[in-house]
Design a protein around this nucleic acid. Structure first.
Lengths: 254, 254
DNA sequence: GATTGAAGAATCGTTGAACAATCCGAACTT
DNA sequence: AAGTTCGGATTGTTCAACGATTCTTCAATC
């Protein structure tokens, strides 16, 4: 289950000089750089470092479920697969470890993080704090509109029966709620938490009913928000998060 | 202003084998490992890696104000000063960058982070979200007692006229409030935010009046918490944070 | 005099190789 | 079957090297 089976891709972006540089196929998909929400928010059009690109690649594989929780990531294997040096991979690991996507076991290696029963409550504690606070603070019309857009995105996905799009829409919804606060730090914290949960969800694959519930909740919450009834919106969101946590705990928990 | 002037110390903990290993004075102060709140929370008595120790050392110098915001941290200099390799320093930087204590400017180096006007609001947004949520959720008697302890610690420090202790007490107070929620993640987020603010406060050095206000607020908040009036405690805390932010914004100006 | 441009120095980014420390599993003993 | 020893695999850390960038300096040009 190491990454050698799943990922034999090559890194995007321009190669520098590199000596042997194993695989040389450099497909240009630099455009993906725009989606960097959790990235280091670098000024201008700075080229992301190789380490950053490695981290991004791994993050992607993590999100896609190619790397399952508990899987081991061997430095040398990944270094070879991606055509970079071990040191660089190591730096990428540091980045991912800071985001809690992987855990380092000293002298044993890094493993894809896996949420324990206790972590569920923990993650939801963060979400409750951040999301409820954000929605209670309200936000500019544009930001509220972004929340609405996410709700509609979810409905459309549901109508189309696209499960993956539905999941994404839900994440957009909650991300948009946090964005109401207009805080870079809250945004990145939320992005990290969502990334953690995404990792987690791959196991307890989600059924259709799951989503139906979300949709109704999201609609109701969004409506309250639009109506300016922030307290009600906050209460609804809080209730939703409690229920969601409960369900997660039931599916996974002890 | 580089670190070479201020920090010519040596790293704590046991040396391994290291070839040339410049300075060989290995003072044993391993006991300091217990204070690692923001650390990676490693199981058992695992020896922190060298990179971790470098990061800890830098974190310390940052907290002590030896490294002022905007100061440049040169890899090779620090590597020499601390008697470790450049690569290791680099890994430590990654850790600190993830905590926002330093910023990386590609191809230019890493610099001690400095909060801009916008960051003030940002940081307080995080604090509002986390602290208020935590206090509204209440906590076990032991945790409430911890909050009380922090309040008393502050009073004692004030009586003794120890400014530094006063500042620490205040941080303990707010840390204890977050700890009410019993969430590892919230604790580390809070620890990071406080570390960021500590960095910042070194500039706008704090006068006595500053603290007096805190003390009264803390007492009142704690009292409400102990009385079980969580809503009131939350409101008070929120008001305090708003005032605090305002003051900070004024001192530091936009 | 101010702008432009071309060396030059200082660092960073990344690599490759090396070796001790550590962990894991398997063969081997008792 | 339980305990011990041994070897292999991988991590932790260091060192040395080199291209790539950025900053600085300084001279040449308009």
């Amino acid at each position: 289950m190491t990454s050698s089976e799943a990922g034999s891709r090559v890194l995007p972006a321009t190669p520098r000089s590199g000596a042997g540089a194993g695989a040389a196929a450099d497909k240009k998909r630099e455009a993906a750089a725009g989606a960097a929400l959790g990235a280091a928010a670098r000024l201008r059009v700075a080229v992301p470092s190789v380490a950053d690109r490695v981290a991004a690649e791994l993050r992607l594989q993590l999100a896609e479920g190619l790397l399952l929780p508990g899987a081991r990531l061997t430095e040398s294997t990944i270094a070879e697969d991606l055509g970079v040096s071990r040191n660089t991979v190591r730096e990428a690991f540091a980045e991912l470890a800071a985001e809690r996507l992987v855990v380092r076991h000293p002298n044993r290696g890094v493993f894809v993080a896996s949420l324990e029963a206790g972590d569920i409550h923990d993650v939801y504690a963060v979400r409750r704090a951040i999301e409820v606070s954000a929605i209670r603070g309200g936000g500019s019309p544009e930001r509220v509109a972004a929340v609405r857009a996410a709700v509609e995105e979810g409905k459309a996905a549901a109508a189309a029966g696209d499960e993956e799009a539905l999941g994404n829409a839900n994440q957009h919804f909650h991300g948009a709620i946090v964005a109401l606060a207009g805080s870079r730090r809250l945004d990145t914290i939320m992005a990290q938490v969502l990334a953690e949960m995404r990792l987690f969800f791959h196991k307890a694959t989600l059924d259709a009913h799951f989503y139906r519930g979300w949709l109704a909740d999201n609609e109701e919450i969004c409506a309250a928000l639009e109506a300016g009834d922030l307290n009600r919106a906050g209460d609804l969101l809080l209730a939703y998060l409690d229920r969601s946590e409960e369900r997660q705990a039931a599916v996974h928990g002890d």
